[in-house]
Computed example of a mutant assay.
Amino acid sequence: MRKNLVAGNWKMNMTYQDGLALVSEITNMVADEVGGSGVEVVICPPFPFLHSIGKLLTAGGNIHLGAQNCHQKESGAFTGEVSAKMLQSVGVEYVILGHSERRQYFHEDNELLSQKLKAVLAAGLKPIFCVGESLETREADETFAYLEKQLKEGLFHLSNEEFDQVTIAYEPIWAIGTGKTATSQQAQEVHAFIREQIARAYDAEAALNTTILYGGSANAQNARELFSQPDVDGGLIGGAALKSRDFTEIIKSF
């Protein structure tokens, strides 16, 4: 079912000690200031921190453990890689897939991501599947065609039952780490388009029930306006997720 959700992607930041301190601050602030607001929170630290941070999160609470990536195979001779089954075994619930940095720096394409989706779902985990266009694509007025291709090739091969487990994150690549942010109207326009594509690929009910996050330099100052848009259900947060006060204020924006 569609829900309000805020996910913090720490990327390759924080030492182990700093990460434990940050998540302790966040859990305390959320408990004191957010309470039973119904907002689901996901924290996605680097792989080495997952088990320890997961132990700090209250079982059954509204803060959940997520990972930033996984391999498409269940096991094998893939040195340095981590499988979805491994993530599940240490308490991970969500996995980010197809982040723009993975697509750009590690050349992950739609075909590979479709395999990763299957692996994540087979392990009983929930994917946060990222789509988004570059500045060149937007300026060429090809945003919608580009997003449609990402969705069709990477995501829409799933069955209805599998798709029910998916959260989508729209990342305008030109607004990640640049300080630029899509206007609330630009975000709403793209989120509505994604929902329309879901309705075409599946049905109106699936479109209505899919959580779609905004993931382009959302912060404590602009989150309220972004999240007020009818098709924006929350955020995939980068830099602001590394500051407990900023991250908590974003959660409170609902």
Rank of each mutant, 00 (worst) to 15 (best):
L22Q: 08
L65W: 04
G124K: 06
L125R: 03
K252F: 00
L125I: 03
K85G: 14
E101A: 13
F247N: 06
R2M: 08
Y202L: 01
L22T: 12
K180D: 15
G91Y: 05
L236E: 05
N4V: 13
F47L: 10
Y146S: 04
K85I: 14
S217H: 05
A140E: 06
T178M: 10
K55I: 01
L57P: 08
N110H: 04
Q229S: 15
A241S: 13
N13I: 07
G80V: 02
W10C: 08
L113I: 09
T183K: 07
I173T: 08
H157C: 14
F247Y: 06
Q72G: 13
E148F: 01
L50F: 05
G66C: 00
L56C: 12
F47T: 13
D141I: 15
A122T: 12
Q150F: 03
I251N: 02
N110R: 03
V23I: 11
Y202F: 01
V95F: 03
T143F: 07
G80P: 01
T137Q: 00
Y105E: 13
N13D: 11
E108D: 06
K243D: 14
I194F: 09
A122R: 12
S24D: 14
I176Q: 15
N28S: 14
A199Y: 02
D203G: 05
G177A: 12
T178G: 12
S89F: 00
A140Q: 06
V120G: 04
E81C: 08
I96Y: 06
N4I: 14
Y16N: 10
T211Y: 09
F144V: 09
E40I: 07
E225T: 15
Q185D: 13
T248Y: 00
S24L: 11
Q165Y: 08
N9P: 07
K152M: 06
F49K: 10
Q185S: 14
Q197D: 04
L236F: 14
K126N: 15
I176S: 14
I43M: 05
G132A: 06
W10S: 02
K152I: 13
A199I: 11
G60V: 01
E249S: 12
D109W: 01
L236T: 00
V92Q: 01
S24I: 10
K73F: 11
G66Y: 00
G124T: 13
V166T: 01
G235C: 12
V39P: 10
E162H: 10
F129M: 00
P46V: 12
G76S: 02
K85Q: 14
V41N: 02
A123P: 02
G35W: 08
E101N: 04
G132D: 05
E189L: 13
E111W: 00
V39I: 06
S114H: 01
F144C: 12
S184Y: 13
F49S: 11
I251M: 02
S114D: 03
H71P: 09
V131M: 08
R195W: 05
L87A: 02
C130I: 04
K3N: 11
G76R: 03
A207E: 04
L208A: 12
I173F: 13
L158A: 07
K73D: 12
I168V: 11
H99E: 00
T167L: 09
A175P: 15
E162V: 08
K73C: 14
K85V: 14
I63T: 03
L65K: 02
A77Q: 10
M14H: 05
E74C: 10
D246Y: 04
